[in-house]
Computed example of a mutant assay.
Amino acid sequence: MYTNRTKLKVRYVETDKMGIVHHSNYYAWFEVGRGEFILESGMSYRELEENGIMMPLRETYCKYIKGAKYEDNIIIETFIKELTPVKVIFNYNVIREEDGKLLAKGATTQVFVNNDFKIINLKRKYPDIWERMHKLFT
């Protein structure tokens, strides 16, 4: 199973009055990690959408363990927990690079839909794209 490791540095704008990263930013980081993960399959989100494939969120989850702070170097680990022809579940670990501490972990569930937002069977309709994603899952 492939795990993408995306490195980021916490920006001041991402922190709150308490000096820690505001909880909403973790979802933006998940999206960055997911985008980089998709790139590893040999395509981009833009290419998926140009082919008529969209991946709207159906469910999100984040458990906050320890707060990230301004200028922390963090790593977003992204991997596929579950892949079916109609949905994908990505898992994420947010790790502080300096000490390896797990700061947060989360998941997003996305469905494969066409431009009319009707669920599609990715394996049947786009077997080449399915194969690229499946290769990163197994």
Rank of each mutant, 00 (worst) to 15 (best):
M1H: 11
Y2K: 14
Y2L: 14
T3M: 08
K7T: 15
L8R: 14
V10E: 09
V10M: 13
E14P: 12
D16Y: 03
K17Q: 11
G19D: 10
I20E: 00
I20G: 04
H23W: 08
S24R: 00
S24E: 00
N25D: 09
Y26A: 05
Y27H: 13
A28M: 00
A28Q: 00
A28C: 00
F30Q: 04
F30Y: 15
V32I: 08
G33I: 04
G33C: 09
G33W: 02
E36Y: 10
E36M: 07
I38Q: 01
L39M: 14
L39W: 15
E40F: 11
E40T: 14
E40H: 15
S41Y: 07
G42P: 12
M43Y: 02
M43A: 09
Y45S: 13
Y45M: 14
R46D: 14
E49Y: 09
E50Q: 15
N51D: 07
E59R: 14
T60A: 15
C62T: 05
K63L: 14
Y64C: 08
Y64F: 13
Y64A: 10
I65D: 10
K66H: 11
G67R: 04
A68H: 12
A68I: 11
I76E: 09
K81E: 13
K81D: 12
L83H: 02
P85R: 01
N91V: 08
Y92W: 05
N93H: 14
V94E: 01
I95G: 07
I95T: 08
D99P: 04
K101V: 13
L103Q: 09
K105G: 00
G106V: 06
A107N: 11
T108Y: 05
V113Y: 03
N114E: 01
N114L: 02
D116T: 11
D116E: 15
I119C: 02
N121G: 02
L122R: 00
Y126C: 02
E131T: 03
E131H: 07
R132T: 03
K135V: 01
L136M: 15
F137C: 06
F137I: 07
F137A: 02
T138H: 12
T138Y: 13
